[in-house]
Design a protein around this nucleic acid. Structure first.
Length: 920
RNA sequence: GCCGAAGUGGUGGAAUGGUAGACACGAGGGACUUAAAAUCCCUUGCCCAUUGCGGGCGUGCGGGUUCAAGUCCCGCCUUCGGUACCA
């Protein structure tokens, strides 16, 4: 039979499907292995060749691990809530669930064609009520817990309440929004509403006012990149900054654990570094400054307490609550104008002119606790509300931003660290000696910092502390297509629904737009309230809600009593291998880790970190082709001649270009305006130019995997995607090379067949040489699989196939193990050959061949002989010859005499099995 | 600006400090064929020599360590990611 991939692939898809070949169940007799892909958002455009790259890699690894005796969990599903479906719904009126389901079905169809070993019985979408019930459930748990910083774990809010009842805030070590102090008596005399208000300061899911980009015309909160120059991208309506009540997750409470946990993970260093920077741990001190003639005090955070003698002004962020209280009457108008202006600037706008210095003096003065000096308090945009206390002590001599500000407003610059030239620029080094600073003079920066922290502690005006850049995550979206919050309001305070009332289903609405009064779409739902008549929350959860814990649900996806059973979690534990893009480094991969740590704290998840090993597959870029039209004509000139004319490059569909040669007929039919195009050719061909760009429809460089499967088969596509290059590298998609892999697959097929195309594997005993080829291959494939070096593994298969073809080896003892090795990469052809060879079970359950080093033992070895590092000739020696003997034999060689030229060598270096170098 | 990664033929890319360019594409030449497809063989980093050998130069740039450097060290350049008034 000839190699007919269409028949073979179709046949095996049906058989695998019917026999549920990839269904996985708990099996305590085998070690578990959990291989997971970042599940896709099913967009309307379908898959392009970039999407399956990671899935193929993880599939190869999953199949490999199965053959190594592991019970492999390899599930797939869809991240289905999100903006595109909602926007499509707004335009067409079609319910987002309808488009989402249609898109998911199309994804499934495309994925199935590639032959993945997913256990589809575990599939779910994040928008399935059976699933989002547990997203809502987890939210309730977050609301009902706070973070105990001393114990470093989440604890029940009841514990905090009983502490308040007994001793107020004394000895409370809870992560909080702002520091509060009250006694037990004070707490006990508070009303229910007041207590609820206070508890929001501690809950892990809390509601609070935050600044958002509000577009009154759209009735909608916009993300930063949806706002340009103060106008909405969609519609161009004015956008203002507004304080709005939003749900927030106290991710920052876990900052330290998120940071420390990184050390236990097998992730790439660069990805860990991105997360470390994002968490942004910095050590420093909180210091309290008194304000002249005021009761209020000004708290600041600094990483440089050692420079406190260099403070020449203080700066507050425009949002700071103190501004109103301390601004003097004569400065009031100016300060108010500045604050209003600054507050209404979007973050993007602020970022756009970071270099521009702006600010205003409040008229008030703080008092330096060490010198007693009056220090003017300013307000400026460059101090951010979300970090530290929103106020700083400015030391212009040793901070470039303070320096720019001081120069601009002609404030004093006082040098307190020796070694810089503060006339020119700020001297920001952290190794230096302190000067002009009273009792810390002569100390190093480090020592001085410690000393100041001790002193402020003594004075009771501050303490050493650690601050993080990581912000709490805003969890409310004024949208329709997301999980509804299991929340209702009483007297304006939020309360959670009972667990029995979950899932709280997404209600039907007449339109997916905000209401006329600017409320979110859920406010349109009839009867959006509890049985008792309390109003329900109208916001929905953001995209990352559903993806934060989906990997846990795959362990036990149909459980209607729990998120997942203890038994399933004990068995599957955590994800051993997670494959996905690095673009999730500061989003999903932080939120998931937070989510998992919380579930670990409350005793649900048995592992603290969800993803043990992570591989980031590189982005697949597009490779666009261009034709060059001579300006003002409909004449196109081939690439090599284009410089002789004035031309304009035009994107041309890559599907009508092969090896950069344009299919002229197809081009004429491509678009009507090219029907009568003329061409200036090179050697009778039209050569196109090319460029690497993002893969997109408008650039006509999208490759659809379906087309390639149709033309070459899934096995070829799978192997070619791996052959392209290292999995982690970003690389352009170039279909040109796929023929080479296709040839290999056909050649591999012929290895098992005779000239008449009959299956012709024999039971003859293999030769030493053939065994050597096999075992060399087993060794290399195993190593490459473990290293995720799938591109070199494909090359290794090609070499082995070429060598065995050369030897006309058609022996079962060689070819069967080879088919097993290949089955992870090209499952269809391997399965077919396996069955032709007489097996009735699936190659999926075959054991990975065992490498035997004895077959690789050499009886002689050819050494390159170099003189002063330059290789001059080669010589063969028995493999068991000692280095000393080799040395003697080399020097006795007649070739050596020529290079030695009568001199005695200074030294001879013999590197066993590598090289002999003679130093003259 | 800061952090991270990477620079190797016409192209994608191989090389535990040990013969750089495996493997593949493309290109050129040839075999088979009426022809095409498919398949197979040879050449293919650059320069000189080419009737046989052969020789020189080559991994972004400049230094260094070493018998030996694409690989290690120092100083640059370029590209790509992340981040950006984080005190």
């Amino acid at each position: 039979m000839e190699y007919n991939f269409k028949e073979i692939e179709k046949k095996w898809h049906e058989i695998w499907n019917e026999s549920k070949a990839y269904k996985t169940e708990i099996d305590n007799s085998k070690p578990k292995f959990y291989v997971l892909d970042m599940f896709p958002y099913p967009s309307g455009a379908g898959l392009h060749v970039g999407h399956p790259l990671g899935y193929i890699a993880s599939d190869i690894y999953a199949r490999y691990k199965r053959q190594k005796g592991f019970n492999v969990l390899h599930p797939m599903g869809y991240d289905a809530f999100g903006l595109p479906a909602e926007q499509y719904a707004i335009q067409t009126g079609q319910h987002p669930a309808v488009t989402t389901n249609a898109n998911a079905a199309r994804y499934r169809e495309q994925l199935d064609k590639i032959g993945f070993s997913f256990d589809w019985s575990r599939e779910f979408k994040t928008c399935d009520p059976d699933y989002y019930k547990w997203t809502q459930w987890t939210f309730i748990q977050l609301f009902n817990h706070y973070y105990n910083k001393k114990e470093e774990k989440a604890e029940k809010i009841e514990k905090l309440i009983s502490q308040f009842e007994k001793s107020g805030t004394e000895n409370v070590t809870a992560a909080e929004t702002k520091p509060l102090t009250f006694t037990a008596a004070e707490w006990n005399s508070k009303t229910e509403d007041e207590k609820q208000e206070i508890l929001l300061n501690y809950r892990l899911a809390y509601i609070a006012e935050t600044w958002v980009n509000w577009c009154p015309k759209l009735g909608c909160v916009l993300a930063n990149d949806e706002v340009v120059n103060g106008l909405s991208v969609r519609g161009g309506f004015p956008v203002e900054r507004k304080l709005m009540k939003q749900w927030i997750l106290r991710v920052s409470a876990y900052a330290e654990r998120l940071l420390r946990g990184l050390d236990t993970l097998e992730w790439s260093d660069s990805l860990k570094e991105i997360q470390r920077n994002w968490i942004g741990r910095s050590e420093g001190a909180f210091i309290r400054f008194n304000i002249e003639n005021k009761e209020e005090t000004l708290d600041i955070f600094t990483t440089r307490p050692d420079t406190i003698f260099g403070v020449s002004f203080m700066v507050l962020c425009p949002e700071h609550a103190l501004i109103e209280k301390i601004t003097t009457a004569d400065r009031k108008t100016e300060v108010e104008n500045y604050v209003t202006w600054a507050r209404n600037r979007s973050e993007t706008e602020r970022q756009a002119d970071v270099k521009k210095v702006s600010g205003v003096f409040t008229g008030a003065y703080a008092v330096n606790p060490f010198t007693g000096e009056r220090v003017p308090i300013w307000v400026a945009e460059y101090v951010l509300a979300g970090y530290g206390t929103g106020g700083i002590m400015a030391v212009p001599a040793h901070d470039s931003r303070d320096y720019a500000f001081a120069k601009h407003f002609q404030l004093p610059i006082r040098e307190v660290i020796a070694g810089g030239d503060i006339e020119k620029e700020a001297f920001e080094t952290k190794d230096g000696t302190v000067i002009n600073s009273d009792f810390i003079n002569g100390l190093t920066v480090k020592e001085a910092g410690k000393m100041i922290i001790e002193k402020v502690k003594e004075k009771g005006i501050g303490y050493g502390t650690v601050n993080y850049r990581l912000r709490d995550a805003i969890f409310s979206r004024q949208r329709y297509w997301g999980e509804p919050f299991p929340v209702y309001y009483k007297n304006g305070y939020p309360y959670m629904l009972d667990e029995q009332e979950l899932p709280l289903l997404l209600p039907e609405v007449d339109k997916f737009l905000p209401t006329e009064t600017g409320e979110p779409p859920l406010a349109r739902a009839a009867n959006w309230k509890t049985k008792e008549g309390y109003p329900l929350e109208t916001c929905t959860m953001p995209g990352f809600a559903g993806s934060s814990g989906y990997y846990l649900r795959y362990m036990d996806p149909h459980n209607d009593k729990e998120y997942f059973s203890k038994e399933a979690n004990q068995y599957w534990q955590d994800v051993d291998l997670y494959v996905g893009g690095a673009e999730h480094a500061t989003g999903h991969l932080i939120y998931s880790r937070f989510w998992n740590k919380f579930l670990f704290d409350i005793g649900l998840a048995c592992k603290e970190e969800p993803f043990k090993k992570l591989i980031n597959q590189g982005m697949i870029q597009g490779r666009s082709n261009f034709v060059y039209r001579i300006v003002g004509t409909n004449k196109f000139v081939s690439l090599g001649l284009k410089n002789e004319y004035e031309t304009q490059p035009i994107h041309v569909d890559v599907n009508i270009v092969s090896n950069d040669i344009l299919d002229i007929e197809a081009f004429k039919n491509w678009r009507p305006e090219f029907a009568d195009a003329e061409f200036i050719l090179e050697d009778g061909k039209y050569v196109c130019g090319w460029e690497v760009e993002k893969m997109s429809k408008s650039k006509y460089n999208v490759q659809n995997p379906d087309d390639l499967v149709e033309k070459y088969g899934a096995d070829t596509l799978r192997m070619y995607e791996m052959f392209l290059g290292p999995i982690e590298l970003a690389k352009p998609w170039d279909t040109n090379g796929i023929e080479g892999v296709f040839r290999f697959i056909k050649k591999f097929w012929r290895l098992y067949h005779d000239a008449q195309n009959n299956f012709a594997v024999t039971d003859d005993a293999p030769t030493k040489e053939e065994l050597k080829i096999l075992h060399k291959t087993i060794k290399k494939i195993e190593e490459d699989n473990e290293k995720f070096s799938f591109n070199t593994a494909v090359s290794c298969f090609m070499i082995a196939t070429n060598e065995l073809t050369e030897l006309k080896c058609r022996k079962r003892a060689i070819l069967e193990p080879l088919a097993v090795l290949l089955s992870a990469y090209a499952p269809h052809i391997a399965e077919e050959l396996w069955h032709l060879s007489g097996h009735t079970d699936s190659v999926l359950t075959a054991n990975f061949p065992i490498f035997n080093p004895e077959y690789l033992v050499e009886n002689s070895f050819t050494y390159p002989i170099s003189f002063n590092g330059k290789v001059r000739f080669q010589k063969e020696f028995p493999a068991d010859m000692s280095p000393k003997e080799i040395e003697a034999a080399v020097l006795a060689d007649e070739n050596a005499a020529r290079w030695l030229d009568g001199k005695t060598p200074k030294k001879v270096i013999v590197v066993p099995k590598k090289i002999v170098n003679v130093v003259i």
